[in-house]
Design a protein around this nucleic acid. Structure first.
Length: 283
DNA sequence: ACAGGATCCTGGGGGC
DNA sequence: TGCCCCCAGGATCCTG
């Protein structure tokens, strides 16, 4: 469920709660996550100290001593939060990390289990994150590289934005919101996009994500962060989940379609494709 | 190379 | 009330 702004919000919440503390024990449910948790990781984690908590794309990176890293992905419904060890255990809690000092626990909760967590040697993390799997952070994305990437593909813009190798961290909400911000139709092919439009899209991604981070991300369908905090960006959606609502720029009703297997929302007027001239019209 | 579909899961909402 | 179907902030694998 969470995209870059939501993961950033989680990381900012966790950082002061985790840094400097130690993991004293780990409990894991028997249910398998997207990548199964290995019992050996529980043993290896006992007694490690948390050095830093950061984000890369939609990944949560928890750096530990002993040259180890705990890498987590929230999938669609994952939550990662710190609570008192006496707090009631919610159903679908799959990992519990006991913390010291204090009597707190870091818990990983995920009803759909599309999320995952794994322990990696620190030396492997950069290769995992910066290899073929993950492109640049949106804030480091160079317009010339983005333009080049678009020029070389016939895939539609929606599919390109969802591709984590092109730019890391954009998901369904922020792909639609960025395309609206850039006034580009989600179905247009990358190779049809000119320089001004590509640069506009590149800038729009950053604008939308920065604003969403300021608003602590979006909270929809009652999924909250951490100790029940809600984001506020869902109140600023221009197209996502606004089907039938008047466009805030031109009052045309927002339309919904399906692209790259995902619900896609856009304004048919502000995000018009260049007119396809029919043979008759050309006559 | 790429589009499209299926897959991994659970829960919530709408229709009947 | 129950049941059935569809949908969901993701990523990956397979097929055509």
């Amino acid at each position: 469920m969470p995209e870059l702004p939501e993961v950033e919000t989680v990381v900012r919440t966790l950082r002061p709660q985790l840094c400097g503390r130690s993991i004293v024990n780990v409990r894991a449910s028997r249910k398998r996550l997207r990548r199964p948790w290995r019992p050996a990781w529980s043993k290896a984690l006992a007694g490690t100290r948390i050095i830093a908590v950061r984000r890369r794309g939609k990944w949560i990176v928890i750096e530990l001593d002993r040259e180890q890293v705990l890498l987590a992905h929230l999938g669609m419904t994952g939550r990662f939060y710190v609570v008192d060890e006496k707090a009631p255990l919610a159903p679908h809690t799959h990992l519990i990390f006991g913390l010291q000092p204090g009597r707190d626990e870091l818990r990983f909760h995920d009803p759909r289990r599309f999320g995952s967590a794994a322990l990696l040697p620190a030396a492997h993390v950069e290769r995992f994150l910066d290899g073929e799997r993950l492109g640049p952070e949106p804030f480091d994305l160079r317009p010339a590289d983005f333009r080049d990437r678009l020029r070389r593909t016939r895939r539609c813009l929606k599919a390109v934005l969802l591709d984590q190798r092109v730019v890391a961290g954009v998901g369904n909400i922020y792909a639609d919101e960025s395309l609206f911000e850039a006034r580009l139709a989600p179905g247009r092919r990358g190779c049809e996009i000119g320089k001004p439009e590509a640069d506009r899209l590149c800038a729009a991604i950053v604008t939308v994500l920065r604003r969403a981070i300021e608003r602590h991300g979006s909270t929809i369908r009652n999924y909250f962060y951490g100790d029940g905090q809600a984001g506020e960006y869902q109140n600023e959606f221009r197209v996502y989940q606004q089907t039938g609502q008047p466009c805030q720029r031109c009052r045309t009703p927002i339309q919904q379609t399906r692209l790259a297997g995902r619900a896609t929302h856009f304004c048919p007027r502000c995000q018009r494709s260049p007119v396809q001239r029919s043979p008759a019209a050309r006559g």
